[in-house]
Amino acid sequence: MAPQTLTEEQIEDFVRDGFVRIEGAFPRELADQVRASLWKQLDMDPDDPTTWTKEVIRLGFCDEEPFVRSANTPRLYSAYDQLVGPGRWKQPTTMGTFPIRFPTKDKKPEDAEDFGWHIDAGFLAVDIGVETYKEWQGEMAVIPPNYEETFRYNVWSKGRALLMLFLYSDTGEADAPTLIRVGSHLDVPPLLEPAGREGRYLHTDDVGVDRPLASATGNAGDVYLCHPFLVHTPVANVGSKPKFMAQPNLEPVAELELDRADGRYTPLERSVRLGLGR
């Protein structure tokens, strides 16, 4: 039997804190290839900061081999199984989106132009059209009309098993690491349960506001596997180099089972039940 990626302690950290960092989840060489490809899409000079004229640029999804291979390593497969359950997740076939954050002058991290506490667990309640969806996911980050009626969340985390943060560049405290409210995933289920399967939209600015904070720092090749209810926000890059990251969804095969007769819940399911006080 191949060695498992996560220890029992790390699994319990995920249940309690809502995330776990996997060091060296994919080779640094793949990260180098991905960055090189993204630089070509950016049409900027990686060696000339005067060409870095925007705070953040979002690139869409990519199915090129280095991108996809970075999400399909044995270490990640093992971790997906351990957290979501064997056979309960779909193999990633594309990577994205890519929020690329460039150094900013005279800014604090919380001054990011898109700073905002949120969760990435939503599903489309109505059809907004492919083009609108692409605009919303892409560089312009166009917010669809009637956003609160369009996107919803339910306690079974419809459509998303994990939020994943793939670090394609070394990311220190100054390099726009995603800011996380530790344990905030436990505050979300009680807000969603009354809405049933239809779900509801949540304003999460104040959800988990008293929770401790953690920054998703690490090296190129590290991956954070996060609970879909984890409240987090982007921050400004106050360092000296661009920050490259992808934030794909690990899609589920089936929705969570929160009332198993045999009581054999996955860590993902256990964390939701913990938030519900079960």
Rank of each mutant, 00 (worst) to 15 (best):
A2K: 15
Q4A: 12
T7D: 13
E8D: 15
D13G: 06
D13K: 13
R16A: 15
D17A: 11
F19P: 04
V20H: 13
V20L: 09
I22T: 04
G24K: 09
A25C: 08
L30P: 02
A31N: 10
A31L: 10
Q33Y: 00
Q33P: 01
V34K: 02
L38M: 13
W39C: 01
W39H: 04
K40D: 14
Q41F: 07
M44T: 09
M44N: 08
D47V: 04
D48L: 02
T51H: 06
W52E: 11
V56N: 03
I57P: 08
F61D: 13
F61A: 13
P66A: 07
F67L: 06
F67H: 12
F67V: 07
F67G: 05
R69C: 06
R69Y: 04
S70L: 07
T73Q: 14
T73A: 10
T73V: 10
S78Q: 14
S78M: 15
P86V: 10
G87P: 11
P92Q: 13
M95F: 14
F98N: 03
I100G: 01
F102M: 10
D106V: 05
K107D: 12
P109R: 09
G116E: 12
I119K: 00
A121P: 00
A121Q: 05
F123D: 05
A125R: 09
V126S: 09
I128L: 14
I128T: 02
G129D: 12
V130Y: 15
T132Y: 08
Y133M: 14
Y133N: 12
K134N: 12
K134Y: 14
W136V: 01
G138P: 06
M140N: 15
V142S: 07
V142A: 08
E149N: 00
E149Q: 07
E149L: 00
Y153V: 01
R160G: 00
L162P: 07
L162Y: 13
M164K: 03
L165E: 13
S169W: 03
D170Y: 01
T171W: 02
E173L: 09
A174L: 12
T178E: 09
R181V: 02
S184G: 07
D187R: 01
D187Y: 04
L192G: 04
P194Y: 02
G196Q: 08
G199C: 00
G199T: 01
G199V: 00
Y201V: 03
H203V: 07
T204K: 01
D205H: 05
D205A: 06
V207D: 07
A214M: 15
G218D: 10
A220K: 03
A220L: 06
V223M: 11
V223G: 05
Y224P: 04
H227M: 07
T233G: 05
T233S: 14
A236L: 05
V238G: 04
G239T: 01
P242R: 11
M245V: 11
Q247V: 10
E251K: 12
E251R: 15
A254W: 09
E255C: 05
A261W: 11
D262M: 02
Y265N: 12
P267Y: 10
R273F: 09
L274Y: 15
G275T: 00
G275H: 07
G275I: 00
